[in-house]
């Protein structure tokens, strides 16, 4: 089982290119955040203008025979493929499997990252003990561990969880640590002078002060979470969206491949929107997060 997966996981150049395409798509939205001050009165509809135009143009090009549907299916074909797979239940099953992997990997890696970030931010001893080690491990690209991880875990859930957790760990660790370090020392002194004990100081001053930075870490981590999962599922899996796309490629079902890529994009956007909503609730005090 593990052997056949390992064989399949040595794809040709074309496969790598396909695997890389959704990665590029994911990387963009999470990095283009700071431009939010540019707002026009048309408000909520405006951001969707460009995607709509692209889809309409794409459909027109396909219908007029300008692009070969063998390599780039029309949007309506992709929608039809989606409908077909939804009917058979295949789509939901793979979607659920991928979501569960992403979420559990994120919770495990993010939880550990948060723990070490807090511990090293609050305790010099803990930082001296672990930070150098963590920084060294950080410089290993986690995706380069895929061959090793396949040897260890085969293509089981463990492999995906491990990779996602590892990828998610560092942004959350580094940003939590930075957030705690950059809490205004004057506020901490004020808390002490006004009689807060260590627990109160943490919950009322340190943690809220570190929260904006922790959220930055969460956003980066969400990007890395999808990226890692897609690569892992594309290379070695027997379920999930990435597996669905790879299967479809073998049968030349281009519409399903494109469908999978679009679903990745939609899931990434959804995760980003959820984080934003959470930021708006948790960071309402910060003028930078109001009215976004």
């Amino acid at each position: 089982m593990a052997d056949s997966a390992a064989i399949r996981s040595l794809p040709g150049r074309a496969n790598r290119a396909e695997a890389a395409a959704p990665l590029a798509r994911r990387a963009q939205p999470s990095k283009s955040q700071p431009g939010r001050s540019l707002r026009l009165p048309t408000g909520k509809l405006l951001p969707w203008l460009l995607p709509t135009l692209v889809i309409v143009g794409w459909q027109a090009a396909a219908s007029l025979g300008l692009v070969s549907t063998r390599f780039m299916p029309a949007p309506l074909d992709v929608a039809a493929a989606g409908w077909r797979l939804a009917q058979t239940g295949e789509l939901w099953e793979n979607l659920w499997v991928s979501f569960a992997r992403a979420a559990s990997g994120f919770l495990i890696g993010g939880g550990i990252g948060l723990f070490f970030g807090l511990a090293n931010g609050l305790s010099n001893l803990s930082e001296k003990l672990t930070d150098t080690t963590l920084q060294m491990v950080r410089n290993v690209p986690h995706l380069s561990l895929i061959p090793l991880v396949i040897l260890w875990f085969g293509i089981d859930e463990g492999a995906k969880l491990f990779l996602v957790a590892l990828g998610v760990f560092f942004p959350i660790y580094a940003n939590t640590l930075h957030g705690i370090r950059s809490v205004d020392p004057q506020l901490i002194e004020m808390g002490r002078v006004y009689g807060m004990n260590r627990r109160e100081l943490f919950w009322r001053v340190v943690l809220p002060g570190a929260l904006p930075s922790i959220f930055v870490g969460i956003r980066y981590a969400l990007g890395i979470m999808w990226l890692t999962l897609i690569v892992a599922e594309t290379i070695s899996a027997n379920s999930g969206l990435g597996y669905m796309a790879m299967q479809a490629r073998e049968f030349m079902l281009v519409d399903v491949v494109v469908l999978a890529i679009l679903i990745y994009a939609a899931l990434g956007k959804l995760a980003d929107s959820l984080t934003r909503a959470l930021e708006r609730t948790c960071l309402a005090w910060n003028p930078a997060y109001r009215n976004t």
């Binding site: 004057q186 506020l187 004020m190 002078v193 006004y194 009689g195 809220p208 929260l211 005090w285 910060n286």
Partner: peptide
Amino acid sequence: AGQSKKIMFQEPRLLPW
């Protein structure tokens, strides 16, 4: 500085959150 002694700093030092 117990409850009977209080200090006001040069900066307000309010908790922004």
